[in-house]
Amino acid sequence: MNAIEVQDLRKTYRNGVEALRGVSFAVEEGEIFGLLGPNGAGKSTAVRILCTLSAPTSGRARVAGVDVLEDPDEVRRRIGYVAQESSVDIQATGRENLALQGHLQDLSGPGLRGRVDELLERFDLADAADRMVETYSGGMKRRLDVAMGLIHRPRLLFLDEPTTGLDPESRAVMWREVRDLAQEGGVSVLLTTHYLEEADRLSRHLAIVDQGRIVARGTPDQLKSELHGDRITVELAEGADVERAARCLADLPGGSEIVTEERTLHVQVTNGARAVPAVVAALEDAGVRIAQVALARPSLDDVYLRATGHSFETADAAGEGEG
């Protein structure tokens, strides 16, 4: 049985925004599944539907073996949910936060007290357990968030952008925790992120979401190996004719795909080292002035670029502006 099965999920908000336009994917038992996408792609919307906080406009979702619309309370008992924005109660201590969460999940007595101590220890919060959460650092709050999601030992955990806004050190700690959860605890994790590196490193399978659709799906390696070869990124000088540059690179030997974006050309080639001189020569012959040339191994960035026709950074910045 899969931990999550989603079929053709759609969500149109009341204000008319189509946040999900038909999303399907499955998360296997015990794996970390990454939902990668820029700001505004629809990641949180998907997570909120799977956690019963929001109703889909259409489509079906089974979470931990239970249909989200048929028996939401059973879903809530089986999952842990960590929202994008930290939602710890800052006017309470860490221990009180965990205890209240436990009570709401029907735990009590010595069993709950033991579990609270265990999680405080595990998430390195034991020393701060009886301090007001107001005094916690961002990383501590985030760890408490995750600990609260785990209080009732769910088999499936949702982490909505668990590391956004964290410093590199806290991020590394969080990555280690998430990995341990899946590897040692056997917990399935659905993690959303807008960091390509995070999705690449943590997830066994991932789906790339863009504007409410899944545009690519597979293991990080599968996705990258679909783009055999290297990528040459050419930034043209101010005022250069991008269209003309693309045309004169089109019949370059060994070149397969060209994506243009403002003044930048992304060229997919089988052998980068050999192609760079040819690219430069072709452009110079055509009188197109070059500002910069870069050569790189394929990354998830390229997967995203190929699937959507725009670079991840551009989309992320655009989504940030509207959200």
Partner: peptide, 13 residues
Amino acid sequence: ERGFVDRLLATPA
């Protein structure tokens, strides 16, 4: 605003 209510609603409370 602080997400307390959503967190609560994601439990069987």
